[in-house]
Design a protein around this nucleic acid. Structure first.
Lengths: 335, 335
DNA sequence: TAATGTTTTGCAATCGATTGTAATAATCGC
DNA sequence: GCGATTATTACAATCGATTGCAAAACATTA
């Protein structure tokens, strides 16, 4: 593997001159620069970042930890973060924590050992299970920014979407259409004060409605069972709020199997705005979490912290607003 | 940031002893080991991999370059590769090339600069555009394994699914059901000798059928137009082979809009076995590319090469067979 | 020409680990 | 108690870059 001293020997100059020439330093003569750069190119020289990073005590690397990549929301976020990080001249080191806490802890340890300059963390679980790893990082001066609300992490920077507001929008939309009997399906992703269900309920409460058909189904079988129960009711709901788009897709499937038409007989709203929602028929009304804003804010924040551009000791808390995407799966209830 | 010498000072021993103690070397006294390990734990010491990797001249890192992460096939593959790599005691460095060749080249350069021990490359395009980067890596002794067939890379190791065989299965299945007029929709992913269309056509040819309704639509609008044209034919096809599952989903959507029922009036087959195919109704018959096998083979191969366990100079070519997944979207043609 | 100032280059230290080898301490046999 | 052997430990070199500072080369002016 070709190294700096090889180029130095070829060019008949010292290593320091080569290093400076390749960095286009004004301290070296233009002719020497040209020669060195030419030789380096010809020889296919590429800097050894392991060595450089050790010397300059920085890796220009931002770590991103996400639970998995199977859930289609993450790929979107990852891509956006990757682009922004790259744009800022940093590299992204992506870790999949696999939604299990031991592995999440491993990811953080690995990022520490690699001396990442900053870390973005999406936790899969409610509490900050990897508290000690996070604290180690913070203690060592590595800024950590959380993406998504986590219990017991009030001292950390946080960027998140206002799920409660999204839930409120959904509730308001359905109520405005005239719905009074609304079922809720899907596992509750605990977002503490920003829970989408709490916003949804708030909207209903404002109209004096109390939703009482809340179930936590998320697997195919569970959703099937819930749908079966709902349509067997003497007075079935006229609308369903699915906690996630993929649950909405399952709702579509089983309503279809039960020969219930959407939105004529039952309206359906999702949450997440996955592409999936446009593949199904009718296209799904849903809530878009502005992943681009989240990514941008998160990267900006973590970079500001790494560069000490933001030395405000108080934890920052950036909350971006989601957006209701109106499509075809909702209509006023039939009389 | 706490380092080896800090622990050495605390323990009153030399750095070498600390290093060996933490590595559980038999060269150090058990008592000293215990003391050092205890102190290191208390102080929250974590090895600096930048320094270690420089010294040991290895990063125990495998690079994985994928075009994007939005296409749901990749997440599946990534997760599998990540698991296998971790299992083998290596770290994964994931790069998103964004399907554009300049960026792909950047990814490879970055992996080179980081001195990854091995690289797995999924190219988005047909030819090996980043030939020079790949050659640099190979020349420097870094093994590169391609995932998916690429033109002009016959000298590199390759792991791939036999798309042609998958296409053959689809063709045979439809012909066996009795279909004679079959349309093909979707952009052709050039797989050279392993193209799924060529296998498909082979199956049809064996029964004396020549498919002549091949279109390259892949966007929503394109598919809509093609479907419109097809159903307006005097003798519409009785089956459609969609090149990708997501194209099949669009086909579903527009056939539904044209009030054509699946599979009663038209059968549909996809390719890729995305989760999407089970969310739509009727569930999609498709071809599963065994991502787990591909991931396992690829990781094994690249690790064998990095560890020089496999010093066979000839490029390896591992081809795994796909599987036809029979679901609900196919039926014999109506008379 | 000598003194001065300005470019340009090289020396050597440094980053934080690992590891071969030498030095020291402990153990043993007699 | 002493040499031989073995178990521990420390010294110092090394990995491949970067960078402060001194030295050398060159240009400028009196």
């Amino acid at each position: 593997m070709i190294k700096l001293s090889d180029i130095a020997a070829k060019a008949g100059v010292s290593e320091s001159t080569v290093s400076r020439a390749l960095a286009d330093s004004p301290l070296v003569n233009q002719k020497t620069k040209d020669l060195v750069q030419q030789l380096a190119r010809e020889a296919g020289y590429k800097v050894n970042l392991v060595a450089r990073n050790l010397r300059v005590q920085s890796t220009r690397t931002i770590g991103l930890v996400v639970p998995q990549v199977a859930n289609p929301y993450y790929p979107k976020l990852i891509q956006l973060v990757a682009d922004r990080v790259k744009e800022a001249g940093y590299r992204l080191q992506l870790h999949l924590s696999g939604a299990d806490q031991e592995s999440e802890s491993d990811c953080l340890t690995s990022l520490y050992e690699h001396r990442a300059d900053g870390v973005l963390l999406v936790t899969a679980v409610n509490g900050l299970v990897t508290k000690s790893q996070v604290e180690s990082l913070v203690a060592s001066g590595t800024p950590v920014v959380l993406l998504g609300w986590v219990e017991g992490a009030e001292h950390l920077d946080l960027v998140m979407a206002d799920d409660a507001r999204g839930g409120y929008m959904v509730g308001k939309h359905l109520v405005d259409l005239g719905h009074r009997d609304i079922a809720v399906i899907g596992a509750r992703p605990h977002r503490g004060p920003f829970d989408r269900l709490s916003g949804f309920q708030k909207a209903l409460n404002e109209s004096g409605i109390t939703p009482n058909l809340v179930s936590s189904a998320r697997s195919d079988e569970e959703v099937q069972a819930v749908i079966h129960d709902l349509v067997s009711l003497p007075k079935p709901p006229t609308a369903i709020f699915a906690y996630q788009d993929f649950v909405a897709a399952l709702v579509f499937k089983h309503l279809g199997a039960a020969c219930i038409s959407i939105p004529d007989q039952i309206s359906v709203v999702g949450f997440d705005n996955l592409d999936l929602g446009t593949y199904i028929c009718p296209q799904l009304t849903t809530v878009d979490l502005p992943a681009d804003q989240i990514a941008a804010e998160a990267v900006n924040l973590v970079l500001a912290r790494t560069q000490n551009a933001d030395d405000d000791a108080n934890p920052k808390r950036i909350v971006v607003s989601p957006e209701l995407i109106l499509r075809e799966s909702c209509a006023p209830p039939r009389r």
